[in-house]
Amino acid sequence: MQHASPAPAGSSPVVELRGLHKSFGALEVLKGISFAAREGQVISLIGSSGSGKSTLLRCINMLEIPDRGDVLIDGEAIKLRGTGASRQIADEAQLRRIRSELGMVFQSFNLWAHMTVLQNVMEVPLVVQGRQRDEVEMEARAMLDKVGIGSKTDAYPSQLSGGQQQRAAIARALCINPRVMLFDEPTSALDPELEVEVLRVIKVLADEGRSMVLVTHDMEFARSVSDWVIFLHQGRIEEEGTPDDVFGATKSARLRQFLNAANHT
């Protein structure tokens, strides 16, 4: 697949952020962030808590609406109107279409509790994308097999371990055939022994050449899985580069300090 291959000249990045600003009340969380993810690229966002990395990720699918700046998916800007804190979605239909191609995986899984695992995975393809049931069910079962919980299709989320739930959530994201996958600290709510199984699945997806933006506190994992690492500090990009550069030849003193602290926890 297209892993780490440069995008063909002229094609748009899968995700592009231009000058994002976001404040919650008086607190300015994002202070002008821009980056672009090419097809097949895995970008990790790292930084201490409160650095704005989750907010940034949530701006990509407009779970948070940025006060300033634009988000482009495949070169198409998500339409917003108004300014500052009162900025809102200008075109709900456009946003729904774009959202149905962004596979988000949450820290707390957020599987729908009243549906079985299989129903969770089939819901969006059937209801939002309007695809054929037979085709979707086949694909959903294949995805659940792929993440290693093919035997749990009829279980409810509450009957699964955290690691199994998160893998089901990843299958849910995969089954929409996402243009890009967004991971918001996917292993933070898991016990260490369950973390491994989820990380292994994400690694497989990265190696397949899926485009991903990943918020993580796991430096070792960020290093092994990413094509590009972005270190956020107080709402700004403090340092970015290839994993080897960012972790091996750290330039910023703040990043060095952060990595030291992360290593000791």
Partner: peptide
């Protein structure tokens, strides 16, 4: 749970 509603929105419902 608010997270489940957020997930539904995030997937374009």
């Amino acid at each position: 749970p608010a997270g489940q509603l957020e997930a539904a929105r995030a997937y374009g419902m």
